[in-house]
Design a protein around this nucleic acid. Structure first.
Length: 260
DNA sequence: TTCCATGTTCCGCA
DNA sequence: TTGCGGAACATGGA
C-alpha cells in the first residue's frame, strides 16, 4: 500500500528503530530488490550510523555519511523492526542488523521495491525528474497550476504523474477526485483556476489526514472512498453508485453521481 | 485455475 | 512533444 502517507509512516518508523544506531552488517536475502551490488551496499553501510531520514514522495532516504540509503517500496514493501535478526519474516529481502543486535527488515513480497544508494536525496530527485512533494511548502497552489498548465490528459493522470507531483498513487488519486467531486477522466484543460485551487487544497488535506492516520496505525475515515472501492457499492457521501473503470492503466473507482 | 493487485519502466502509436 | 494503452516485472490471495 505504499503511497506518500504510508512512506511517511515508514520514515517515522525508521527514525524510531534505526536512527543513530551503528550498522553491524547488512543481510541480503534476495538480491532482486537491490539497485547496487550487495557488496557495495554492505561496504557503504557497515560501521556507519544513520544520521537523518528524509522522504520525497514515495521515496525514503537515510543519511549514512558518505552516501544515502534509498528505499522504494514498490507495491508491497514495508519496514519491520525485530529484536533478533533470525526472527525476520519470510519476505524480509534485506535486513539491516545493528550493533545492539536489533534489526530493521525491508520486506517486499512482490519484489517491486528497490534498495540502493544515492549521493543525496536532492541528486536522486533531480536524476529521476521527480516533481515536488505535495506536503512541502514549495508545493503552492501557484506551483500546482503551473504544473497543470498545458496538459491535455485526464486529471487522474496528472495527479499520478511522479514528474508533476511525487507521491500520489492510484488510491490517493481516486480519493482526492472523489472528495473534489471531479470525474477521474475529466480533462485537465477543462479545469478552471478555481478548480485547480480546490484540487490542490483537497489533495493536501487527504494526504495530511492519511499521514496522521497511518502514523497512528489507524484506518482512513469511513466516509472516504477508500473502504468502498467495489463496483456497485453505495457512495457514503451522496448515495450514488460506485463505478469501476480504468484510467492511466489503473483500476479506478469513482461515484457515478457526484463526480463530474 | 484464473484474475487481480497500492508501483515503475519501456515500447509503440496517435 | 505529449500522453496514453499495454506489457512486463514477481508473487500471493480471492
Amino acid at each position: 500500500m505504499p503511497e506518500l502517507p504510508e512512506v511517511e509512516a515508514f520514515a517515522r518508523y525508521f527514525a524510531k528503530h534505526a536512527l543513530k544506531k551503528r550498522v553491524a552488517r547488512v543481510v541480503v536475502r534476495d538480491e532482486r530488490v537491490l539497485g547496487v551490488r550487495a557488496e557495495t551496499l554492505s561496504r557503504a553501510l557497515r560501521g556507519a550510523a544513520f544520521r537523518e531520514v528524509r522522504r520525497h514522495g514515495k521515496h525514503l532516504f537515510a543519511d549514512a555519511g558518505r552516501q544515502w540509503l534509498h528505499l522504494h517500496f514498490g507495491m508491497s514493501g514495508e519496514l519491520t523492526a525485530h529484536e533478533d535478526p533470525k526472527a525476520a519474516p519470510r519476505f524480509a529481502r534485506v535486513i539491516f542488523v545493528f550493533s545492539d543486535r536489533t534489526c530493521l527488515a525491508f520486506e517486499d513480497m512482490r519484489l517491486f521495491g528497490v534498495v540502493d544508494l544515492t549521493p543525496s536525496p536532492e541528486q536522486y530527485v533531480e536524476d529521476h525528474s521527480l516533481g515536488p512533494d505535495p506536503l512541502t511548502p514549495r508545493f503552492t497552489p501557484r506551483v500546482f497550476s503551473e504544473l497543470a498548465r498545458g496538459r491535455r490528459g485526464a486529471v487522474k493522470s496528472l495527479l499520478m504523474s511522479q514528474d508533476v507531483i511525487a507521491g500520489v498513487g492510484n488510491l490517493y488519486a481516486d480519493e482526492t477526485l472523489y472528495q473534489c467531486g471531479v470525474h477521474p477522466r475529466r480533462s485537465v484543460a477543462d479545469l478552471s483556476g478555481a478548480d485547480l485551487r480546490v484540487l490542490h487544497r483537497i489533495l493536501r488535506g487527504v494526504l495530511r489526514t492519511a499521514v496522521e492516520r497511518r502514523i497512528q496505525d489507524r484506518g482512513l475515515p469511513p466516509r472516504w472512498l477508500f473502504d468502498h472501492r467495489e463496483e456497485g457499492k453505495r457512495c457514503p457521501q451522496c448515495g450514488g453508485s460506485i463505478q469501476r473503470t480504468a484510467v492511466f492503466g489503473r483500476t479506478t473507482y469513482f461515484c457515478g453521481k457526484h463526480q463530474r
